[in-house]
Design a protein around this nucleic acid. Structure first.
Lengths: 219, 219
DNA sequence: AAACGAATTAAACAAACGTTTGATTCGTTT
DNA sequence: AAACGAATCAAACGTTTGTTTAATTCGTTT
């Protein structure tokens, strides 16, 4: 945090505070203090509090959309494309957990300015998912699932772990060791593609990293 | 709204406003005006703004937990139990959409008072899911999916439509008619239990109600 | 009708809010 | 060294915030 520019410190600290306290629940004075910056610098760099939020949302959506384009567009099978997408997206969600939380917490709110931003990104994502997933899926399996249904399902599913993490930390007893991001990804892929009730496959077993953790505990 | 008691009007209006503008983003004066109630009545009935939020969260979790107990506990097959649970829960989410949105938007925030409330409900839900879903699942399929993973996945998946609805309303073009709650439920059950890539079954076709809508349009 | 507690009210409280102003410092260019 | 724009600052702007107070109305019980 020390080597960052003042503007970067504001951005980073804002993502952290907005994620933990909500956008409206965070005051600019607290943000300025925690970012070690003068209060007026926030308006100076981002125009307004809402302008700061817009930049955060844009930053998250831009990368998310980039991942979707990279992993979903192409000639690979639906199975591989979706597996790769989920894997990359979850890795991104994990690395930018706070940006994800800010975005999701602001999703249901209906501020006209913000809604417009979100819808723009939603339209682009819907175009990709429609062509690269929904249409091939209808051809291969006969199932017609609308993008407006599949898009939210997929994103919510991948975000679930992070949405509930502040709550689940106090639910899972001390005995239960937390699930690594890798095996979380494997579970997601398996459930979303093959279903919860499908017979277990070898890719569903605990990943190597989890096994090592387990061993180091029992010894 | 006219026949409700002042306390009920405050509660109902608060759910609506918190869902659309967020908890911290809603002022008590605006709430008092919209609920046609004197400002001081809010503190009088609910103690504080946070007290009001706690009652909303409790109200939502109580019914959600009730549904989980009713549909998941018993000797039916995993398939039927989960199908019924998803069906009931989605119907409840749809009827209490705003309570759901308030709850989810507050999930990631780490206010100690609120976190404690959420965790209490989370623990109870985890106990049910663990015994009635995770353990039977491990026996039947060999897959060991921790509750701290499955719980959030299931809830997020069912909530996805409602979380994204303000955004998706502007994404889906006018041509595309919205998915009914019934067929949304069928899609959820099919994807979660059999997987996205499974071959289409008859329960996956558009539900009767959707077919009627489609017919009335083309004629 | 007197008395009582619950319900409702207008008014005020200090604190925090987002934003703006005008002066000052800093590094670079002329 | 003079000049310039960008960056930083302390201070104040007018609102709005959640909460509390004390007085009043209301319906019921005595």
């Amino acid at each position: 945090m020390e080597s960052l520019s003042p503007k970067e410190r504001i951005y980073t600290t804002a993502v952290l505070l907005f994620a933990r306290q909500g956008f409206a629940g965070t005051g600019l004075r607290e943000l300025a203090v925690k970012a070690e910056v003068n209060l007026a610098m926030i308006s100076y760099f981002f125009g307004s509090k809402k302008g700061l939020l817009k930049e955060i949302l844009d930053g998250f959506f831009e990368e998310y959309l980039h991942i979707a384009r990279k992993e979903l567009i192409g000639d690979a099978s639906l199975n591989t494309k979706l597996s790769r997408f989920i894997s990359s997206a979850v890795r991104y969600f994990a690395s930018e957990q706070n940006s994800l939380l800010v975005t999701i917490a602001e999703l249901p709110h209906d501020d006209p300015e913000i809604i417009e931003h979100k819808s723009n990104w939603g339209r682009q994502m819907a175009r990709i998912l429609s062509r690269e997933v929904c249409e091939p899926l209808a051809v291969e399996t006969g199932k017609k699932i609308p993008v407006t249904c599949l898009g939210p399902m997929l994103t919510s599913l991948m975000a679930s772990r992070f949405l509930f993490s502040p709550m689940m930390e106090r639910v899972g007893g001390d005995a239960e060791n937390p699930v690594s991001v890798e095996s979380y990804t494997e579970i997601l892929v398996a459930v979303f593609l093959q279903g919860l009730l499908a017979q277990g496959q070898k890719r569903l077993n605990p990943s190597l990293s989890d096994k090592l953790v387990e061993r180091s505990k029992t010894r």
